[in-house]
Design a protein around this nucleic acid. Structure first.
Lengths: 156, 156
DNA sequence: ATATAAAACTTTAAGCTTGAAATATCTTGT
DNA sequence: ACAAGATATTTCAAGCTTAAAGTTTTATAT
């Protein structure tokens, strides 16, 4: 979508449509900025960062299917990203005794170190990019988005 | 990013980080649903829809650079999407007399018809997907996101 | 006039993304 | 034990995406 600065449509349902357009533009703007900074400052990408962030929170590791469910992307997608992270030595696949279909994916020592550095910068960027949003508004907005999310959890 | 249901981090700036994570998850969830429905019901994609939506609002046509600026994507990206829309007969490039580097891109008659149909369905989907957000909250959220956006307009 | 720079666009290489098909492994019913 | 089905993952083809390099055309400064 990403419609923008033009004739404000009116009518029933238009408020939600407008909300969606704003939501999408906001997230795309921020995402673009993060992508650029990740590239310039750390020579990495947003998808790689996403995967590492998920793994950082799970020291014991995650299954590929856990990753794809958590990140809201397809299985095949995760395979490629993890492959690249493995080839860069940031992530490792560990075979499991119980089930030979699966393997636990986790950050290597190097990956953990690297992520900690990037994550610190990332948090600073977000603080900067959302600087004009007051802490109060941030909490209120988060609350609204959370209640929205609960309508969606566990669909399908 | 897309972190999620885990130990709520605390500290200065964490509220904004949490807001960003929620924002991103919300837009990805909705985007994924729209993408799926556009594919199933109309055999098209979100990027194609975005381009057509932009052109629908500009009957006189748009330059490629206008499109890429408006949609927040790169030039080369738009080239590919428009190429495909042209080959499908939904969009046309019209040479301009004044400047031979550029061409006006616009919807064909067929493209206009097709878009009107898809847009109607799209608006219904948004109403459904954001149904739990009250009109009141929708307006308030939109307001917050708009003021956020104004900090970003015309950067770079 | 004419070189130089600027602008608009396209091409390219690498990586991301999806949905569908293929592979391998495990589980269940008999 | 064994077939049939379910699970977990990878592979594949097509399309999306970016940044960087290349092409063509227009504008500017001598």
């Amino acid at each position: 979508m990403v419609a923008g600065p033009l004739p404000a449509p009116s009518g029933p349902g238009k408020d939600r449509l407008r909300l969606w357009i704003r939501l999408l533009r906001a997230s795309r703007t921020i995402e673009a900025e993060l992508r650029e900074r990740l590239k310039k400052d750390f020579n990495t990408t947003l998808p790689r960062f996403d995967v590492m962030a998920a793994l950082y929170r799970a020291p014991e590791g995650m299954l590929m299917s856990d990753l794809s469910r958590f990140l809201l992307v397809s299985n095949g997608n995760v395979t490629g990203i993890v492959d690249r992270l493995v080839s860069e030595g940031l992530v490792a696949r560990a075979r499991r005794n119980g089930d030979r279909r699966t393997s636990m994916v986790r950050l290597t020592e190097e990956g953990t170190q690297a992520f900690a550095t990037i994550a610190a910068a990332h948090e600073g960027w977000i603080g900067e990019l959302l600087g004009k949003v007051s802490e109060d508004d941030a909490r209120r907005l988060t609350g609204m988005l959370t209640s929205f999310r609960s309508n969606w959890e566990g669909r399908e």
